[in-house]
Design a protein around this nucleic acid. Structure first.
Lengths: 237, 237
DNA sequence: AAGAAACTGTGTCTGGCGGACACCGTTTAT
DNA sequence: ATAAACGGTGTCCGCCAGACACAGTTTCTT
């Protein structure tokens, strides 16, 4: 049952684009359906995406979508593939460090453009070709520097996790003048009121200093740590 | 409207535990309700948590819960607080690095015990006292090593993001013999079939090497990176 | 040319969800 | 004793994902 659902998703994401068949020609396409879902999610969040709304946006009935997509989970998987898009081409002559930096920034941009990607990519799921292509880029950038295969994968997980964490935080602070500022303000008030219980956090937040450096800060720490490992491995040779 | 919901949550998570009042004495409590929700989520996932089921588990009707909790979002917030629990006490005499290592492992344990915490803690939300206490621990561990306030917060975000990333990945591989192994297998098959398009990933996955080192690997890289920064700041003094 | 087969889109139905609201009984303050 | 406040319940609504039967359309086979 679980396996069948996984197979459905695999077939949808990796299978052939279409097959010539009998009967009326499909009026819709996976691409159009996914695009409609993305449009709704971009505007109102992933929670607002329902079969009804997606179908309505395309001027079809809800049930017609089930001719193309086995269920909502698969629709979301298609939306993710559509939204992440192709990974950026690796910049030339910047070394692995520059490549990973550029990669992380591009990924952060994707999350900023489609905040619901955070919600849509939690939990076990099947990766699509484009998502896997992003992973390929980062693993490839680390090839030939003395890291084992698992280590390269771990490094990719590390980078992805960081970008995700930053993206999640950016939804709080958000681009200037966002509606969730009150939420941050409420939390700030709470921290100040309980400063005795959380002195370190209160002090850290009271400290001045330009914000929005979180992505850069963590990225530099990670890359410094990776560089140290690469250097150690190079010495060992 | 958004602000009111935030205030409701703040009041529930931070407000006084109860007030003596007129009328019948409450037969339920926030603690029992949250515990029931956690029990369901642990057993069947966050998606299985509904007001119906929570009330049913307590032998009450769904609507009675609304006398205690404004809505489902607030219930989930209580569940999170209940599930994360108090942060571990910082080990003595191990330095900031040892403290952060222990902290990360404890947090990873929490995620392993309650996988649904990953789903429940996506998106903007108000932190509860216990969750903030976890944050306090990590920020406090970095006090007095030359990092600015924002940098200490960034470091906390970095660590949290990594542990989350590992927890998310662990749901794929999971503790031995989990039902989602097929999902990983399906992805492995796909990668092998398309090894030409994803050579680096295919090679990395074909590489032997003990797994389950991902948490440790990333943690070491992050801590190495932080140590380098700390050392640099110490030199600057 | 004719029928069978396959496919697409639709309408209807079910079970479950979060939540609004009116209601009744209980408890406490006045 | 009375009035106010409060706790739990039953009913209702709109929305959701999805199952299923059905009608119309196109193409393959004979």
């Amino acid at each position: 049952m679980m396996a069948e659902a996984a197979n459905d998703t695999v077939r949808l994401l990796w299978g052939p684009p279409a097959k010539p068949t009998r009967g009326p020609k499909p009026a819709l396409s996976l691409e159009r359906i996914a695009a409609a879902g993305v449009e709704i999610a971009d505007a109102e969040g992933l929670g607002a995406v329902s079969m009804q709304k997606v179908a309505g946006l395309l001027d079809f009935t809800k049930m017609s979508l089930y001719r193309y997509v086995p269920g909502k989970a698969e629709l979301v998987a298609l939306m993710v593939e559509s939204a992440v898009g192709e990974p950026p081409t690796a910049p030339e002559g910047v070394g692995w460090r520059g490549q990973l930096t550029a990669w992380a920034h591009h990924l952060a941009d994707s999350f900023a453009r489609h905040p619901w990607l955070l919600d849509a990519t939690v939990g076990p799921r099947v990766l699509g070709p484009k998502e896997l292509a992003w992973l390929e880029r980062v693993v490839a950038a680390l090839d030939g520097h003395g890291l084992t295969g698992p280590e390269r994968m771990d490094a990719a997980v590390l980078l992805t996790g960081h970008v995700r964490g930053i993206a999640a935080q950016s939804r709080h602070t958000g681009p200037a003048g966002n509606p969730e500022a009150e939420l941050l303000a409420a939390l700030g008030t709470v921290i100040q009121e309980h400063a005795d219980r959380f002195p370190a956090v209160a002090a850290a937040m009271a400290d001045p200093g330009g914000r929005d450096q979180a992505l850069e800060f963590g990225l530099e720490r990670i890359l410094d740590g990776l560089a140290a490992l690469v250097a150690r491995r190079a010495d060992a040779d």
